[in-house]
Design a binder for these strands. Structure first.
Lengths: 199, 199
DNA sequence: CTTGTGATGACAGCATCTGTTGTCGCGTCA
DNA sequence: TGACGCGACAACAGATGCTGTCATCACAAG
C-alpha cells in the first residue's frame, strides 16, 4: 500500500480542529489560517470546504432534509402540528453524537456570531418545512405560523431533554405542547373584569 | 447664523444613504466607504456611529426598551400572554414611519446577511422581555416559551397589517392568537379511530 | 487668549473572503 | 507503458470589513 498524497477526510479534520480551537480560545480569536493549519491545510483550502468561517460548525443539511422527509411521510390523518411534533421529536440525535451536540452547543452559546448563524439555520429549516406543511392543505402563512409555534415548543423541550438523559424528546415536547394549550386558553370562561391570574 | 463645520444628523444621513444604496445595488455590492461617501463622510466615521455595516439598518434599542416598559406597566391582572400581545400590538409604528419600515423590510428580506441580523435583534428583544415576564410570576423557561409563542403570533400578524393600512396590528394579533388556539386544540374530543394512538 | 472638547480625517494594519494559476499524484485509456 | 485529464491542494494577489492611533480644526468655556 502506498501513502496517499493527502490525509483523508479533510472536511472532518477541519470541523474537529475548529471546534477544538473555538473551545480553547474563542471564535473571534481563532483565524481561518489557524484552523486550516491545525488540520494540515492552508487557509485557501478551508474555503473550498466551507463558504465562511461560521459554517464549519453548521455544515450539512441532512437534518433539514430528514425533517422534511419525516413530515412528508407522516400519516395524512395527523394534524400538521402532530406531524411536526413527531418529526422533531425523533430527529435530534440521529446524525451527530450527543457529546458533539453538547460541545457544539456550548461554543455556539458563547459566541454571538455563531448564535446568529444558528438562528438562521433554524429559520432555514422552517422555510424548508413550510412547503411540506402546505402540501397537507394548510394556507402558506398559516403553515409558517404553525412551524414557528412547534419550533418554540422544541426550544422549550430541548434543554430539559439534554439535562435528563433518560427521557424522550418526544415526551417532553408533548408536555410542552400541553403547557402551551393551558397558557393560551382564556384563564376563565367568564369575562374577566377584575383580573384573574392563573399561573 | 453661521455655517456649522459639519452638517447635522450624521447618523441619520448614514442610515438614509445606506438604505438607498442597499435598495439600488444590494447589500453585498455596496461598500462602507460608499455609504460614508454618500453621506459626506469617510469610512472611518461610519464606524463611529455603527459597530458594523449591518447595524446601520438596526440601530437603536428604543423598541426593545419600550416593549419592556410596556410589559412592566401592564395591568397585573393580565395573563402574561395578554400583556405581551398588548405591548407588541401598539409598539410597532411608534419610532419609525410606516414607509421606512416597508422599505427596510424589503431590503432585509432580500439580503441573507441582513435577515440574519434581523433574527438576532428579535432574539435580543425576547431576551430582554424574559425578566419582565418572570417578574409576573412565571418560571424562567416558561417565560421564554411564552415570549417565543407571542413573537410567532406577531410574525403571523405583521404582514397582514402591512398589507392592510386600515386595520390595527392589535386586532390582527388577537386574530392570530385565536388561530393558534384552534390549531393547538385536539381536532376532535373523541379519540382518533383509524389513526395510531397519539404519542 | 488659552485651553479644552468633540467630530472628523488620515494612515496603518489585520482578518475575512475571492479569483486565478501552478503543481503533483492518480486513474484511465489506448 | 506512456500521454492525458482530473481532483486536491498550494501560492499569490486583491477587495473589503473592521480597528487602533494620532492629527486637525471649529467652537465653547474660562
Amino acid at each position: 500500500m502506498r501513502m496517499p498524497r493527502w490525509e483523508s477526510d479533510a472536511q472532518g479534520r477541519l470541523e474537529r480542529a475548529a471546534l477544538e480551537l473555538f473551545e480553547s480560545q474563542g471564535f473571534e480569536r481563532t483565524s481561518v489560517a489557524q484552523i486550516a493549519g491545525a488540520a494540515g491545510l492552508k487557509e485557501r483550502s478551508f474555503y473550498r470546504y466551507f463558504p465562511d468561517k461560521r459554517e464549519v460548525l453548521f455544515a450539512g443539511d441532512e437534518l433539514e432534509a430528514h425533517l422534511v422527509a419525516q413530515v412528508e411521510a407522516a400519516d395524512p390523518g395527523l394534524t400538521p402540528i402532530e406531524a411536526l411534533l413527531s418529526a422533531l421529536g425523533t430527529a435530534e440525535e440521529i446524525f451527530r453524537p450527543r457529546e458533539f451536540l453538547l460541545r457544539r452547543g456550548r461554543v455556539i452559546a458563547a459566541n454571538p456570531a455563531l448564535a446568529e448563524r444558528d438562528l438562521i439555520k433554524l429559520a432555514s429549516i422552517a422555510d424548508a418545512l413550510a412547503p411540506a406543511i402546505e402540501r397537507r392543505g394548510v394556507e402558506p402563512g398559516k403553515a409558517r405560523f404553525i412551524i414557528d409555534v412547534v419550533l418554540a415548543i422544541h426550544r422549550r423541550a430541548l434543554p430539559r431533554w439534554l439535562a435528563t438523559p433518560d427521557t424522550t424528546l418526544s415526551q417532553l415536547m408533548t408536555q410542552a405542547a400541553a403547557e402551551l394549550r393551558e397558557a393560551v386558553m382564556p384563564p376563565s370562561p367568564t369575562p374577566r373584569r377584575h383580573g384573574k391570574p392563573l399561573d
